[in-house]
Design a protein around this nucleic acid. Structure first.
Lengths: 416, 416
DNA sequence: GTGACTTATTTCAAGTCGCAACGTAACCCT
DNA sequence: AGGGTTACGTTGCGACTTGAAATAAGTCAC
């Protein structure tokens, strides 16, 4: 990502252009509901609206928009009703200008999804993955055929792909080349980018972005879901393991080597249960789906964790053991979330991930209660604890926001 | 703090001016050593140096500097040796242009310190405070006489005070007026600013800034101490209680209601010891000096905690109990710091506060070890764990950086 | 000493940009 | 058809940064 130098009057122009484009783009993304499927298209805006939204003068907006219209990034979509004056010309992203692809390398499946500039989904592909058999080659092959599939299904010209974003569970190391470290996968320093680019199939010769899956999910919720408009928020992903994304100042916080937000491995019980990361007392060792099932006495080394967890939850009505396990789980989650609130003082905490959503169905009040008990009064009062709104494809959607972010900032394709 | 709108070519000018001024200011602050006392003055810079440091052209630096020279904020301090060309004119802040005052409302004492623009200390005052008798009125009176004292001792004209910064233990609520909530103090919604301004003595009619003491200490270490140059860091304050300051992107992170970084109240033992905050299992309930002494069986409700802790530490050579208490303490601290590292992926962790410095004398290796055990490999490897460099007056120094920050950004005195 | 050489700083002439003011377009209502 | 109203485009101005050229202020070899 190019360093955005500031100082000259030209940088100002780039910034203002980006501000207008961002404003227009985000206004198009609906407050998505779980059942949202097709398009995030929501609302167009006029030049006037953009002027007040960005704080720029109408004249400047006109200039920037003219440029964007000339480049065909933006189109006029029609006229608004008038109540006496010249009707406002409504503007929108030109869906056909370009496309982005998001890839979710998950714990149990690989997902690939292709969007146009209006974030309308144009094609998707999904491949199951045998848990505990995450061979690198298998995953790479799935990604590559997924890319092929969405390209041919949508009929989109590969040259029109602005970029591909890939969310993986594990830590990204950004050096001379991108390396992926995944403890769950037993991946150690996997050069995923190189493998994708040299793959047998048509790895598009276009910008690729890598990030942790919890962070891409967080960015999806931030842009389109329960996090819309938040400046400081935390998005928690509870799946087999536990992850999170921290939003600081409206952007995803990554830390110095982009491995921040490993929420699953904060210590909630000093000298507690051993965690698969090697440490002890991690939150993930208590509140991840895998750990919950273990504590319940039904470890699932391979099979269908989702079904098993659902079973546990419904058993809680009659089984004292199951109820106790869930009660404990909300204790631990509350302790972890409370720590997060005390440390980060967010305005919103969003719980997502398949296990998080399952658990929250019945456990949300208990989690809120436990969180309250484990946090200070003032920061707790400033926070709302909510559920994620984007469902299981949130990670892929968020991955697609990575190239989009670059595009909106005008830092994509230095060529042209 | 005024909202820094960006967009016009004039804002650009303000930003560039601020960039030059910051660069010049920070280059003057020495990598301070514990024994530093008088001045932070370190190194002057030429226009050339500023040009490369800020990325601005030499011409622009000349223009900005001319303006600053005209305003007498900056002065030429002499010429550098030449090795064949025109010698560089060295520039520095004009110490006499204005002054800032930092106030540290601590757990056992109140400190007031006055600095000039070069951060040379011009006067200081200190008042002991009977722990557990923090009457608001007493503290306010101490602050007001401290302000009087440093003003008369230094002979500085009150009109030349650019602003006063005040660090308090507890949470700052920024509403229509600033309120302070301090659990340690039993302060609830204390309108400290109003009390200071309406005090019997000459509360200066000038900008006042309030922040948590751990945050001001963190900012002092960030600007002048062990945190210099860091973009992402954590400064931990271990005193009677435990606090922290989070540095994100080179600036202090405050969260949505500026109560972030309450590190002392993250949960390290779910369902653990009761903490004075009302919750259970907080880090502070294990690793704060007060808690350590309690666990040692020698609670100090009033007396000299510093001496008592020092005694405990030296007793560890012979007493099995004392050694075990310290060993446990480093376990808990390591768990807390490890969580911080996993969550925030900082490049540096700095331990300060009087108890932190005492403990680290012998315990630092054990704390490092325990931290390593409680954090993931990659983020741990990217972090260094160091000691604070600024000693007991760091909180006051940091408090003085609050008005200084505003001054450097050009957001002070809208008048003139 | 003196002239050639170096390096730092200032001046100058473009080139950009955002903005306020003003002009024009497009629609409503009567 | 015409007046009213709102949205949008254009123009001229002031402010800004910058690269290049000019100037300032030394060093060095002889």
């Amino acid at each position: 990502m190019r360093d955005l130098k500031r100082g000259t009057v030209r940088d100002l122009r780039r910034d203002n252009r980006a501000a207008v484009l961002w404003s227009l783009y985000l206004s198009q993304s609906a407050p998505a509901r779980p059942q949202f499927a097709q398009s995030l298209l929501y609302q167009e805006r006029s030049r006037q609206d953009l002027s007040v939204a960005t704080g720029l003068s109408a004249a400047s907006v006109t200039n920037v928009i003219r440029e964007l219209l000339d480049e065909r990034i933006v189109i006029e979509t029609g006229l608004a009703e008038s109540d006496g004056g010249r009707p406002r010309a409504m503007l929108g992203m030109n869906p056909g200008y370009g496309y982005v692809i998001g890839v979710d390398v998950g714990e149990t499946r690989t997902r690939v999804e292709l969007f146009d500039l209006a974030m309308t989904e144009r094609a998707k592909a999904e491949y199951p993955l045998d848990p505990y058999r995450h061979e690198v080659d298998t995953v790479v092959a799935q990604i590559l055929s997924g890319l092929d599939a969405v390209l041919s299904d949508s009929g989109v010209d590969p040259d029109a792909i602005l970029g591909v974003g890939i969310g993986v569970p594990g830590i990204i190391e950004r050096g001379p080349e991108v390396l992926v470290h995944g403890q769950t996968y037993n991946w150690d320093a996997v050069p995923l980018e190189r493998m994708l680019r040299s793959g047998p199939l048509s790895a598009p010769d276009c910008p690729m972005f890598f990030d942790n899956g919890a962070k891409t999910m967080g960015q999806a919720e931030l842009w389109f879901g329960a996090g819309r408009g938040a400046r400081n928020a935390v998005v928690i992903l509870v799946g087999s393991g536990v992850g999170a994304s921290l939003i600081s100042g409206g952007a995803t916080y990554r830390g110095v080597t982009s491995s921040a937000a490993e929420f699953g491995h904060i210590t909630v019980v000093t000298n507690g249960r051993r965690c698969r990361c090697g440490s002890t007392g991690c939150l993930e060792a208590y509140a991840g789906a895998e750990a919950i099932l273990e504590r319940y006495g039904r470890p699932m080394a391979g099979g269908d964790q989702e079904a098993a967890l659902a079973e546990l939850i419904s058993a809680a009505d009659t089984s004292v053991l199951a109820a106790a396990i869930l009660e404990e789980t909300s204790q631990y989650l509350g302790a972890g979330i409370g720590s997060l609130i005390n440390l980060l003082n967010p305005e919103r905490v969003i719980i997502g991930g398949w296990a998080g959503l399952q658990l929250s169905g019945t456990l949300l009040p208990a989690i809120r209660e436990s969180t309250k008990a484990h946090s200070l009064r003032h920061p707790f009062a400033a926070t709302s604890i909510e559920l994620g709104q984007l469902g299981p494809w949130a990670v892929a959607l968020g991955a697609a926001t990575l190239p989009m972010e670059s595009f909106l900032n005008g830092t994509l394709d230095p060529a042209t």
